[in-house]
């Protein structure tokens, strides 16, 4: 019989992290490409979803890194089209979340993720401060973070006249509790 350690995978691979965080085994994927076929944004991706999974299946640092450095992972909309149709029941959006979080942690996220990240961070900033999303605050914060100052400037007045812009943030009573939730989860990552 072969050595008992033969099949033990290294605990520091991305695949192992995915397994620990989501319970999904990368070995389930048999590379049929149905995810890439149905993905609304796969044409825009440098690595299609099935390629990301393929890289992770190796369990080797250089391929893990290639997946984490890709721009494509930041385009995943979590629309769940892939997971709904996957014949092997692989929940790809959950895997994408893990790969993105890991890329951020290691500071190797693709430069193109900058705007997308800026938006998500601005969004969460707003929620952390007031407990709810303050849309004007979000846009202002996003512009600061991304440097896209002119983005949608023509939209705001139109929204205003239609009563779609709340000028003041809604503060909830439990703001302090929400702040503590952020501290316990996101911690210093934000």
């Amino acid at each position: 019989m072969s050595s008992a350690n033969h099949h033990e995978s290294r605990p520091d691979t991305l695949a192992a992290r995915v397994k620990a965080a989501t319970g999904i085994s990368l070995a389930q994927c048999y590379q049929c490409g149905k995810c890439a076929a149905g993905c609304p944004v796969s044409e825009e991706m440098d690595l299609t979803p099935c390629q990301v999974l393929r890289l992770l299946q190796y369990g080797q640092d250089k391929y893990d890194e290639k997946a984490m450095r890709s721009a494509g992972i930041w385009l995943c909309l979590s629309c769940e089209t892939c997971s709904t149709r996957c014949p092997q029941e692989v929940e790809i959006p959950k895997i994408m979340d893990v790969v993105r979080a890991e890329a951020l942690k290691r500071g190797i996220a693709h430069p193109k993720s900058k705007d997308i990240l800026a938006f998500h961070r601005a969004f969460l900033d707003s929620v952390e401060q007031t407990g709810r999303l303050y849309e004007i605050g979000l846009v202002a914060n996003y512009k600061l973070r991304s440097g896209h100052f002119m983005k949608d400037v023509m939209l705001a007045p139109k929204m205003y006249v239609r009563g779609k812009l709340g000028l003041l943030p809604h503060m909830i009573k439990g703001t302090a509790a929400v702040k503590r939730i952020f501290k316990r989860t996101l911690g210093s990552k934000g």
Partner: peptide
Amino acid sequence: PDWNCCGASSAHVLDHELSVALPAKILAQ
């Protein structure tokens, strides 16, 4: 009462635990 934001499409991109905790707070309220 006194509901908070659910984290929408942003929380889960940055932190899984946060993306579960925010909605859980709402349901607990």
